[in-house]
Design a protein around this nucleic acid. Structure first.
Lengths: 222, 222
DNA sequence: TGTACATCAGTGAACGCGCGTTCACTGATGTAC
DNA sequence: TGTACATCAGTGAACGCGCGTTCACTGATGTAC
């Protein structure tokens, strides 16, 4: 039943968007009276949380699966695999992607306890990849200028939080790659390129990914 | 009056988001009966369009102003100025930014005639910058692999549309920089970095911009 | 095998709400003579 | 200066709608003896 709610919630997300997602409409499509939903879900917000967590997990699974097909030490290929998996999943589930990475839903605040775990799977995969690549010497030492004080402190905190023992420059370049990766996906999905501009968006994205890998200096062999 | 509608519409956008923007609520805050709005605006959709166009224009103005303070031939600085102006405006107007660059509003389709002009101002500024920089030799010839066929055709069409006589590699790198720039802004504004992660997001963004400029090989002097 | 009972998924009516949009209207303002 | 008229911004009632949430309820299912 919860499974059905999730599935139909997804469909409605696709049809009307998160802000207009309605308990009653989901119930209707479930063939059940609207109040019945409240047996499974406290709130409209909890329904949204369900979809958020579900989405993050699906994305995380897709990324793990794609990454699993590549040799652990093929760092550059792993990065490309992760990126492509993100895009592929996003194209298949645009509404859920929008829920996770688009504009925040006004009035809804994802509960951190349920959400941060699944919500950080992709970035944790990326961090693990960079840490391993750095340890293996598959990423060069970047001669970037030292960071301004505040940023250095922030980056230090981030490094400690994720337990990543890599240089500042790599953290910053990693964050750029991460944000840029999702930026490319969002641009495509949210229609920023305009209609009919790209007949082969996957090819464009692939190139963008390669450039991001270049920017990190990521190579496959150690 | 239209001016007041715009201003209050903006406030509501901030408060409740585009999907829940309501003609009645705007009228209420205007101190006017709800039907009065229809004297100025055909539709709820036209109200949204008003805000979209207004937002694009404000952003475009901000970008132009920032770019104007930098010497035309200081290509790298011009790029940084554009990027910073985008972020600054977005931070000041997060809801309008979300309307323009976040998830599409379900059920609303921006009318191309009114929207594409203002909506492409930033990217046209970027393209102009790259074309000039390339002509001046302030951007290197990138030794990127040739594009796959479909992408090459797409890129060719884009180049023709915008009248930019630059190599394929620069077009692709430019599109990455464009998407990445907005990706960084969206990540910050949409809360992807998590709360309290960056005390100095502007410094992070600045670094990301520099890296994007590096990736293009943009330099100031010709 | 048969009865008594508890559980609990789903019902249906009701609450109070805000929404977009229409329509005939009022009444102040400004123009023409 | 004074009157007649047109314009048109704003009114207020009404339409039909869907929403989230509550609450006492029904009735099938499963368990205990």
């Amino acid at each position: 039943m919860l499974e059905d709610i999730r599935a139909i919630g997804r469909q409605h997300l696709e049809a009307v968007g998160a802000a207009s997602l309605s308990v009653r409409a989901v119930a209707r499509d479930l063939g059940v009276v609207s109040s019945a939903i409240y047996r499974y879900v406290r709130d409209r917000d909890e329904l949204l949380t369900l979809l958020v967590v579900d989405g993050y997990d699906e994305l995380g699974d897709a990324v793990d699966r794609a990454e699993g097909k590549v040799a652990r030490t093929a760092y550059r290929s792993r990065f490309l695999a992760i990126g492509r998996a993100v895009r592929t999943w996003a194209v298949a589930e645009p509404a859920t992607y929008a829920l996770l990475f688009g504009s925040p839903v006004p009035g809804y605040h994802a509960p951190a306890e349920q959400t941060t775990g699944p919500g950080t799977r992709v970035v944790r995969s990326l961090v693990a990849l960079w840490v391993e690549a750095h340890a293996a010497g598959a990423v060069p030492e970047h001669a970037d200028a030292p960071l301004p004080q505040k940023l250095a402190r922030d980056v230090g905190r981030v490094r400690r939080e994720v337990g990543a023992d890599v240089p500042d420059a790599l953290v910053v370049r990693g964050m750029l790659a991460w944000a840029a990766l999702f930026g490319c996906v969002s641009f495509e999905l949210f229609g920023q390129y305009g209609p009919d501009t790209f007949t082969a968006p996957a090819q464009l994205f692939d190139r963008q990914l390669e450039l991001l890998a270049d920017q990190l200096g990521l190579s496959d062999a150690a």
